[in-house]
Nucleic acid binder design. Structure first.
Lengths: 350, 350
DNA sequence: GTTAGCACTCAAATTCGGTGAGTGCTAACA
DNA sequence: TGTTAGCACTCACCGAATTTGAGTGCTAAC
């Protein structure tokens, strides 16, 4: 059964009021503050229907109605109006992002900061997942008698290095040869393919020829590749939840903190999420501990390829329209900041 | 006026009991559970004296006594017995630290984890302050037509790099020359002296001779040096405070979280702290928001030179003896792990 | 189909007496 | 003079009873 125009209007009013006040909303309040042209009694009848249909719940008999996850879902899908940001807000975002655009991780972190500042929610931003990134060159540089530096550059512009202590002295030309062999063999290959060992065996024999040098270097090489694949997750506005009535209770606040304290876990969940702007509401979240949260994430691109995520987490009672608009504008900005022709993104290893 | 033997005994018993129970301790409990050989009435008299002297306080008339900051200070200075760790605990620490000793930052972070695991408090660990670190060499490596990589190695073994986009093509020999000039000029100088501009002017003329190359590179050079000076702060066990009765109150918990949420601020305070094992109790902490916390920090060394810090923060009611023993053992382990002859600390840039 | 009226419900706030842990004082005792 | 028993007093805490008020659901009339 479809919802009548009037029911939709009432539902929208309830959601609007509840999102603002965090208090269950009653029929009288509704008829007083919203221009619905019907009496509280009629509203009550409609609300009763809406409850039966699963859009509203009742904390207890004598309380007002509260929107259910289903109501929010309907709201996000059809009722919600995206909020056009004011020029001033746009400027704030654009300016803030510009301020340190040449430090990749800094910019990402900063974006999360802006997001939590504007929304007053807890935000997070994930550096790109580099599974598609490809080796550009590999270098081995002498430091002193027993130490060399391994340096790996990827097509995306990321450069990693690691100091390696050898067991004894080495010959510089052997070092150079090894670097060249490695570059020759791995250039153009995906970092993830190499680090998982897929390609190692095929060239092992070539490298073997290079005396014992590789014995010391290969483990560090693989380790460094693995580190290059790591994503960083920055969180901002963690303490914002203390201002949210839903978390005005030690147990809830604790659960929230513990959820976000397990960064690795949370990161994994973010990676698994679909691309684009995704809103998951309450019970829609697979994870039990997030069943009374909503999560909004969006994807940003670097050079139109690698994919990072940014988003917010908060109570299901959330200004969905506003938040998604902000996130969209933010990712648009990130996308253009990290576009190829922008060029100087001067990434740094982590 | 000095405290009588008996007063000391009573005070120690009160502290011991309160640290365990977090409840104000009364005269009856004391005479029952501790073998003091005097009646509750006598204990009351003594407690009354102790209160007058500032060692105890009274939440309200009909409650037991609670130790004051002054009492804890006395305890830490004279009464406290250091707890000798069991062989098992020692093994846990040693094993955990060994597991990834060749990733510097990982080891530090891990140490903080161990600390919070054992103490059930919130812990933190700061990577070394590198103000005394000295340049070892500087290299500039060609990547493609318009990009080079700047690489800076310090005596401590830290290696940083940064990709630099130039405005146009460059000549490789000029690049090499510039790298050599930079190394020649700055080798052996403190990173902090260079990055603050102290030494720049003196060699500017030399570098000027090298065509416009330096215009692009010097800003990145300085920036990278500045980044090399950054310290990282890792925090662990943040949510442990939720288990501590003193923070069983949303306002307190919030204050705590906000205090630690401002990482930069907190880091600065740690850097300012004296070296060695330092305990500051309640009001002794300069910062108002920490007036009902105690902070224990200790210093670890890398190659006997640079200095990092590790410690815990928690309520003033804390097992001082146990915690300081653990921290001491932990820093001992870190010191030997990062000793010169240990050699392979294989540090990585941040 | 809409509305007014009214009985009913129930969370939250308020009040109030009881309970018990603990103190402080006093007077007696060693 | 220091120690102890005794006793009145204090006060946070708990739970029961009461009040308040926002809000519903139902019914009957428009």
């Amino acid at each position: 059964m479809d919802l009548s125009e009037r029911k939709l209007k009432i539902l929208q009013a309830i959601i609007g009021d509840y999102v603002k006040s965090a208090e269950p909303v009653g029929s009288r309040t509704l008829s007083k503050n919203y221009d619905l042209g019907i009496s509280p009694a009629t509203i009550r009848n409609e609300m009763s229907d809406l409850e039966e249909m699963g859009y509203l719940t009742h904390p207890h008999t004598s309380a007002g109605r509260v929107p259910s996850d289903k109501a929010y879902r309907l709201y996000v899908n059809t009722l919600m109006e995206k909020k056009e940001l004011s020029q001033e807000e746009k400027n704030v975002i654009a300016e803030s992002l510009k301020s340190n655009v040449n430090e990749f991780d800094e910019t990402i972190k900063h974006a999360a900061q802006i997001l939590s500042d504007i929304t007053n929610l807890t935000s997070f931003a994930m550096t790109p997942n580099k599974n598609e990134d490809v080796i550009k060159y590999i270098n081995l540089l002498p430091v002193d008698e027993e130490t060399v530096v391994l340096m790996i550059a990827s097509e995306s512009g990321k450069i990693s290095n690691k100091a390696i202590s050898l067991n004894g002295p080495y010959e510089e030309d052997k070092l150079e040869l090894l670097a060249k062999t490695l570059t020759y063999n791995y250039r153009g290959h995906k970092i993830s393919d190499i680090s998982t060992g897929k390609l190692i065996s095929s060239i092992k024999s070539d490298v073997d020829a290079l005396s014992g040098l590789e014995e010391n270097i290969m483990p560090s090489f693989l380790k460094t590749l693995n580190e290059m694949l790591n994503v960083n997750l920055y969180m901002e506005g963690l303490t914002n939840i203390f201002d949210i009535p839903e978390y005005n209770d030690l147990k809830k606040a604790r659960g929230f903190m513990e959820l976000l304290g397990q960064k690795e876990n949370f990161t994994r969940k973010l990676i698994e999420r679909d691309d684009g702007v995704i809103v998951t509401i309450g019970e829609e979240n697979s994870d039990d501990v997030m069943n009374d949260c909503s999560l909004i994430t969006a994807t940003y691109q670097v050079d139109g390829k690698m994919i990072g995520k940014i988003g917010v987490i908060g109570p299901t009672r959330m200004k969905y329209g506003e938040v998604t608009s902000i996130i969209e504008y933010l990712t648009d900005n990130l996308n253009s900041a990290f576009q190829l022709e922008g060029g100087k993104n001067g990434q740094k290893e982590d």
